[in-house]
């Protein structure tokens, strides 16, 4: 694997204002994630895992601190540039799958490529290959409502992977899945991480994910509580 930090958070703080109360979700958090890492962000509920993913994914902005992705300071990028970065360099996988319900499995996976303006023929080849890779061959024309939870999450992974992003941010990706499905999906992600060199950053409570992760970053009350590299 090619090492070097692809994600860097320096002294990041995030404070939410809820009426007159300020809630500190992240408190002076610093971490660097190397290219090709398969990293789990762990911690109890409310520890700030999802907030970290949202900030790294340029969906949310920190109250203080600096976040860089592939060397780009996110604070320096315009809304359009952030959209482009999310489209081309980041893939998201959500706990609740979050597929577009009116699109088929194929179209959901194709969606981001269409946003990129990729020609249809090229899109087709890329999407079909990716759906095959996540084990959805033959289910391309099914809508999300016609797929099981595990199949929907595979589509979500295909959607995140199909653009060959630099980073995939997965927020509790196995939380709604049974053990067998979760294990299968983790194998797929692990395979994609190794074969495509894509950096994975998970937020999770799931011991199965933590067992497969090569690095575990632990959060508590928005602060770094541990950072363990395996092997």
């Amino acid at each position: 694997m090619d090492n070097g930090p692809i994600i860097k958070l320096e002294n990041v703080t995030k404070v939410y204002h809820q009426g007159k109360i300020n809630v500190t979700a992240i408190d002076g958090f610093s971490v660097a994630v190397d290219k090709g890492d398969f990293t789990a962000l762990c911690g109890p509920s409310g520890s700030g895992k999802t907030t970290i993913l949202n900030i790294v994914g340029a969906l949310d902005v920190p109250t203080a601190g600096r976040v860089t992705l592939e060397g780009n300071d996110l604070a320096d990028l315009s809304r359009t540039a952030l959209s482009t970065m999310r489209r081309d360099r980041i893939g998201f996988v959500f706990q609740a799958y979050n597929l577009i319900p009116v699109l088929t499995a194929y179209e959901n996976a194709e969606f981001v490529l269409a946003l990129q303006g990729m020609p249809e023929r090229e899109r087709r080849a890329r999407v079909m290959e990716m759906l095959k890779e996540v084990g959805l061959e033959g289910l391309e024309n099914r809508r999300p409502e016609e797929l099981s939870g595990g199949q929907q999450q595979r589509v979500a992974i295909a959607r995140a992977m199909v653009t060959q992003p630099a980073v995939i941010l997965a927020d509790e990706p196995t939380a709604n899945l049974d053990s067998a499905t979760a294990a299968s999906l983790l194998s797929i992600m692990e395979h994609l991480n190794i074969s495509h060199g894509i950096t994975f950053l998970f937020s999770t409570h799931d011991q199965r994910v933590m067992d497969r992760a090569r690095r575990i970053i632990t959060l508590r009350d928005g602060k770094l509580a541990g950072d363990e590299r395996k092997g």
């Binding site: 959209s83 482009t84 999310r86 980041i90 969606f111």
Partner: peptide, 10 residues
């Protein structure tokens, strides 16, 4: 979600 996966506001 569309914004998250890269749709622009436009």
């Amino acid at each position: 979600v569309m914004l998250a996966v890269g749709s622009s506001p436009l």
